[in-house]
Simulated scan of single mutants.
Amino acid sequence: MATDIIAAVDEAAANVLLQRGEQALGTRSASGSAALGPFGAAYSASANLTGGVLRLVAPGTAAVDDVAVHYTLSLKLTLDLSFLDFCLPRICIPTPFGDICTPKICLGFPTITVPVSFSSTAVVSADFGLSVTLAGGDWVVALVIQQVRKLDLGAAATALVLAIGGAVAAAVAAVPFIGPLLALAVGVIMAAFGVASIAGLLGTVVNLFVAGLTIELTRRSQVITLPAAGPNDPAVPFTIAALAAEVQSTGEDELVLSADL
């Protein structure tokens, strides 16, 4: 005959489990590419999560507010400078023997790669559901993201635009013969990197670490053993055949685990 075991934790204890779960996630990495106006950008990023306040909302939601996503972004911008290509006008002087002209001289500018490093913090609030799975002989209870309610990038987009501007100016200054065209080149390039487009890129990067996010709250072996009570009462192993997790409201909202043995 199955025996039920019920365990419950309040919001304070659930928040402790949340912080431990964030620490267990550690630093995660992601990469991708994006178009910024006429230019391309490849990026790699790493991030870790800290903080946040968990609210248990019956019957099955764990609302987590103000989780800090600390990220570091490495951008490689591919800038085609061919818009600066030009040819010097030819000058011809008529003579009794025909025109004498200067040779045609054209300058072509290369495609360059501009590296940019940037770090900041975004603040995310989201709703999570509860997941219970059996993995490798352990029952795992976790939070699984359902929807992002708020994503706050702060002033990161503006700061990244300024960082890109400095990196672009330094990179194009190193291109031979571009000195007289430096201001034009930087101006045209930076016109493609508006705050809105950079905010879109940062939002995409942060979402890489948020989409499908699963935070483990607790892990317990499927087999539990009651200790021996005496020489004639040996230890007894039990198998947890089923485990369920839900948020229940009994005066206060609690995270409740129910096990069938």
Rank of each mutant, 00 (worst) to 15 (best):
A8V: 06
V9C: 14
A14E: 10
A14L: 13
L17S: 10
Q19L: 07
T27P: 01
S31I: 06
G32A: 01
S33G: 10
L36H: 05
F39S: 11
G40M: 04
S46N: 14
T50P: 11
R55Y: 14
G60N: 15
T61G: 15
A63D: 15
A63P: 13
V64T: 15
V64Q: 15
D66M: 15
T72D: 13
S74H: 13
D80G: 07
F86N: 11
L88E: 09
P89Q: 10
T95I: 07
G98N: 01
I100K: 09
C106G: 06
L107N: 10
T111C: 02
G129H: 07
T133S: 14
G137Y: 01
G137P: 04
A142Y: 10
L143V: 12
R149H: 11
L151P: 00
L153V: 03
V161R: 09
L162M: 11
A167S: 13
V168A: 04
A169T: 08
A171H: 04
V172L: 10
A174C: 09
P176K: 11
P176F: 13
V186E: 11
A192R: 02
V195G: 02
S197G: 11
A199Y: 03
V205W: 05
V205C: 06
F209G: 00
L217V: 05
R219L: 01
T225M: 00
T225S: 01
L226E: 09
P227N: 00
G230N: 00
D233Q: 12
A235K: 03
T239E: 03
I240E: 00
A242D: 06
T250Y: 15
G251W: 03
D253W: 02
S258G: 05
A259Q: 04
D260I: 11
